[in-house]
Amino acid sequence: MRISWLLNAVLLIALPVCGESDAVVRVDFSNPGLYPAQWTLVIHPDGSGHFHAEGGTKPADESEMIVPARVDRDVNLSPDFASRIFSEVRDSHVLRGKCESHQKVAFQGWKKISYSGPDGEGGCEFNYSSNKQIQDLGDSLVAVGSTLIEGARLELLLQHDPLGLDKAIQYVVEASDDGRLQQICAIRDILERLEDDPHVLERVRKRAHLLLEHSGS
């Protein structure tokens, strides 16, 4: 009888954990003015996930730039960030489909945020939301997608145009400071490679080191 009671107690404790691990937040972003023009980010509660980006036409004024046409990889975001995203999705009007403000504002790209888990599912799509919590949530998720694309670009530059790394990584430093890029920890691998590569410029290595020092944010 005691063994049975203990088994039931363990199951009761484990069920919420298993249920939480089954929850997923998915973000679909599209903006034909950007390249790649669309991407999808799937996030699990522990910060693990997957990112896929492709599509669009490279702008004529960027024809000589080395940018990734396609990105497809597993990602790891910080658990604190993932926890905040899940909390905000559940607490906001996202699950009720109330996001878009329908105001006449500049086009920022369509963000479709979806949630599914043992406690339900829902989501909505918007260009701009007058709900500050939802707008900030969308901005943060777009910033993560931008970080992953910039990380893929750094990888291409390291392989094909090492001198181009100087300007590219300076942008990453500036954009991470002002919030245009978030979750630098998601591109830790390429930053570590740059920091340790004696064949790239010294200032590129120093900037990679600086980013790694702050990659928990």
Rank of each mutant, 00 (worst) to 15 (best):
R193W: 04
S217N: 06
L34E: 14
D161V: 01
V27C: 03
P118F: 15
L156T: 13
K206W: 04
G33K: 01
E150Y: 13
N76T: 08
R90K: 12
V75H: 05
S30T: 11
S146H: 15
T147D: 15
D61G: 05
G117Y: 06
S87M: 09
V142A: 14
L15T: 05
S21P: 00
W39F: 11
Y171A: 14
P59M: 08
R73W: 00
V204E: 10
E155D: 14
E202H: 05
D177L: 12
S21H: 02
I43N: 09
F81M: 00
R205F: 10
R84Y: 00
K167T: 10
C124G: 10
S87D: 11
F107Y: 13
L11R: 04
S30R: 12
Y171L: 15
V24I: 13
D161M: 02
L77A: 06
H102S: 07
L157P: 12
V105G: 10
C18L: 11
V27R: 01
F86I: 12
L212F: 00
A82I: 02
V71K: 03
S114C: 12
Q108F: 03
T57Q: 14
A23K: 01
D22P: 00
L156Q: 15
L15F: 01
L6Y: 11
S30M: 09
I113M: 05
R193D: 14
K111S: 04
F86E: 12
L12K: 08
S4Q: 07
L154C: 12
G49R: 02
Y128G: 03
G123A: 06
V204D: 10
R180N: 00
S92Q: 04
A152V: 04
G122W: 02
A37R: 10
Q133K: 07
S140L: 13
R203E: 11
P68Q: 06
L157Q: 10
L191P: 06
N31S: 13
R203H: 11
V25P: 09
N131D: 15
L6R: 12
G145H: 06
R26H: 13
N8A: 09
P79K: 06
R84G: 00
V71Q: 06
S215L: 03
E100K: 07
V42W: 02
L15K: 01
A143E: 07
H44L: 12
A53H: 09
N131E: 15
S4N: 02
I13R: 09
L201Q: 08
G216K: 07
V105W: 12
A186F: 07
L15V: 04
E20N: 05
R26W: 12
K111W: 00
L157H: 13
K206N: 09
K111L: 04
S146D: 14
S30Q: 12
G97T: 05
L156W: 13
Q170N: 15
L163F: 05
S215Y: 06
D166H: 15
T147H: 14
G55I: 05
I113H: 04
V173H: 03
